[in-house]
């Protein structure tokens, strides 16, 4: 069994929990890949018909049946369980995470519709860990570079999301969260009623999200106790988006980047004050 003193290992373990849940969710909904399903390969292969990659990717196409993908998802679950017992720094641990990366890349060819930012963050982390821990070639410095890449991508994601919201009239008018929460797709009846009862909460929530997301990269430059404010905010934000909006996979994918933010903050040669 591995010990969670290593930051990279901690990133991987948090991510693994989310990937395990997400993969089990795909197994539960495997009928979406059936011949009569929403992402049936009979239809989805048309997406690749005009592409030169078709010949290159042909060997993978046999996998995209309902049974092929079921097998792929079960293997992915086993790989994730294996990563609990074999550290990333071991050769076997690296083989396991490489196979995990292959399984994620393969399934991404058919889940173009339906995947979200958490799936992209998960793939981004897994591929970075594979590249930065290649046995025999990767150095400790490369492992650090990998953590920097993961942390900077997390900061970019929050910052871009914040700036895009600041540029939106609906977010600035404090109506965006009320409107999103009132949908059945991403909202809830209780949240809608709460925001109708306390209209001031709309303004607080919209501006809170816009300001904190935009300023999130400050967590790299502030002294650690102040940087923690951003990470605690992020934890609370993702917890509530999981609770109210059902975005459970975002919680794990983004929490997995937080150890990397801790690492960068502690590597910074200077802080703002």
């Amino acid at each position: 069994m591995i010990v969670l003193t290593n930051i990279t290992q901690l990133v991987l373990m948090i991510l693994s929990v989310g990937l395990f849940v997400s993969t089990l969710e795909y197994i539960k909904k495997i009928q979406i890949f059936a011949p009569n399903g929403l992402l049936s390969w009979n239809v989805m292969q048309l997406n690749w018909g005009q592409r030169n990659q078709k010949t290159l990717l042909k060997p993978f196409f046999k996998l995209f049946s309902q049974s092929g993908l079921s097998t792929l998802f079960v293997i992915r679950c086993l790989l994730l369980v294996g990563l609990v017992f074999f550290p990333l720094q071991s050769v076997f641990g690296w083989v396991l995470i490489s196979l995990l990366a292959v399984s994620l890349l393969t399934s991404s060819l058919i889940t173009r519709y339906g995947s979200d930012g958490s799936d992209q963050m998960s793939m981004l982390i897994v591929i970075t860990l594979v590249l930065c821990h290649l046995p025999g070639l990767a150095s400790p410095r490369l492992a650090d570079i990998g953590l920097w890449f993961i942390g900077l991508q997390a900061c970019l994601s929050y910052s871009v999301a914040g700036i895009a919201k600041l540029a939106s009239a609906e977010w600035r008018a404090s109506t965006a969260i009320r409107d999103v929460f009132s949908t059945k797709t991403y909202g809830s009846k209780k949240a809608t009623l709460f925001l109708q009862k306390y209209p001031a909460a709309n303004g607080f929530l919209c501006w809170n999200v816009m300001i904190m997301e935009t300023l999130f990269p400050l967590c790299l430059f502030l002294p650690w106790p102040y940087a923690m404010i951003f990470l605690i905010w992020g934890f609370t934000f993702h917890f509530f988006t999981a609770l109210i909006m059902g975005l459970n996979s975002f919680f794990w994918a983004f929490m997995a980047t937080y150890p990397a933010l801790y690492f960068i903050n502690h590597q910074m040669p200077w802080h703002l004050f």
């Binding site: 930012g117 963050m121 999301a161 939106s168 609906e170 965006a176 999103v180 949908t183």
Partner: peptide, 12 residues
């Protein structure tokens, strides 16, 4: 990735 979650036009 495209990181502009729910912006500039939130799905309402």
């Amino acid at each position: 990735p495209l990181w502009t979650f729910f912006a500039p036009r939130p799905g309402k």
